[in-house]
Write a protein that binds this DNA or RNA. Sequence first.
DNA 1: GTACCTAATTAGGTGTACCTAATAATAAAT
DNA 2: ATTTATTATTAGGTACACCTAATTAGGTAC
Lengths: 216, 216
Amino acid sequence: MRKNIAEEYLETILYLTRDGRRAKTRDIAQAMAIKPPSVSEMLLKLRDQGLVEYAPYEGALLTPSGREQAQQIERKHQLLETFLVDTLGVEVDAAHEEACEMEHTISESTVEKICAYLGHPRLCPDAHAIPKGPCCEKAEMCTPLSEMKEGEEAIIKIVTVDSSTKDYLLSLGFLPDVLVSIKKKLPSNSLLVRIKGAEIAIGRDIAHKILVCKVM
Amino acid sequence: MRKNIAEEYLETILYLTRDGRRAKTRDIAQAMAIKPPSVSEMLLKLRDQGLVEYAPYEGALLTPSGREQAQQIERKHQLLETFLVDTLGVEVDAAHEEACEMEHTISESTVEKICAYLGHPRLCPDAHAIPKGPCCEKAEMCTPLSEMKEGEEAIIKIVTVDSSTKDYLLSLGFLPDVLVSIKKKLPSNSLLVRIKGAEIAIGRDIAHKILVCKVM
DNA sequence: GTACCTAATTAGGTGTACCTAATAATAAAT
DNA sequence: ATTTATTATTAGGTACACCTAATTAGGTAC
């Protein structure tokens, strides 16, 4: 079974079962612009894979694992669409079409990076809610380094910056689970921090992208 | 013939003919991890589509139209890879793999937007040169609004900003081919410009993303 | 309860991209 | 020049996702 195709079915079934009812063969076929016999056939395969609950003449339902996969694809779609529209300025309709294709090729770890890049958005350009991902949960337990006050201490948790900045920060010792203390907040909103015994100045923009966990 | 698959063949042939020699069936098969008979078969189809020059036992060569398509995919790949690595901080190897998939799903117009977003980069993270696209040519004939001097006038050409900023600028009349004149350059590098009779302040960051053509 | 209608399934078939095994062409070696 | 090795092609077959046409199941009307 082709991965993209299975994903399309799962997405469609997720959509059609939103109201709690089982998805009918006919409706799945219609939504995917294919004929009902193709659906019957595929539902058997998806059932064998443990992705849908299905018995002939009774429609289909997602199993927990099928639902999880479907939701993950949907989230990929929404984050891609958000990125295309909000960051690149692609038209909403075109972005939707393109996200439909790209959602099957982007990896889990890359969507998480896009999510962080977009600041863990809660809404898609089409106004649908975007479910939280693992990156959102983590980010919620953290505060940007830029919001720390003088004298406070924190543990570095997530650093989401481009690769050259990342290399620079790594060379300074900015790794997850390392302790930093804020020595001074400069008027430009730059920070003077102490890390591994060295005092380092960090610009406002970068400090905003370093998420830390306050130490009480 | 599936689009993605044809594209994979074209890319492979482009790569294998870099040295001027014709691509051998065996080498194409090896590069694509498939068997030679599959290649022979597909080469006939690609020939019928006018994408490759091919005669049995003589290997394959790209036609002008095939070469153009192949180069376009290659450029998509490189820009995606650059984006993944430089902007999102994805590991180089993972980015390469992912770009291999995504290159077939991203549209021409969206790659152009990514290219502009990245500032028309000339090099890929893997050190290969990225060929110029139409957006690069246009951008070369323009200067960022932020580099204009007080008293100068210019025609707006390309505005590459996120969608909310775009809406804001549109409401002010920042459309292509509209004339702006720089009234004052503020110490913060913000600009006071005159557009359609109104005086408007534009921040440094936004001014950098508005490309204009100087009027002498 | 029977007739009827709609929806779903089964049966059988198509096109695509791959495969293996067998055959043919080219290139290299003696 | 003939044999040998390599490479390419042809022939025939598989898996997949779709299709149409025919059949069967389930719900509704009378």
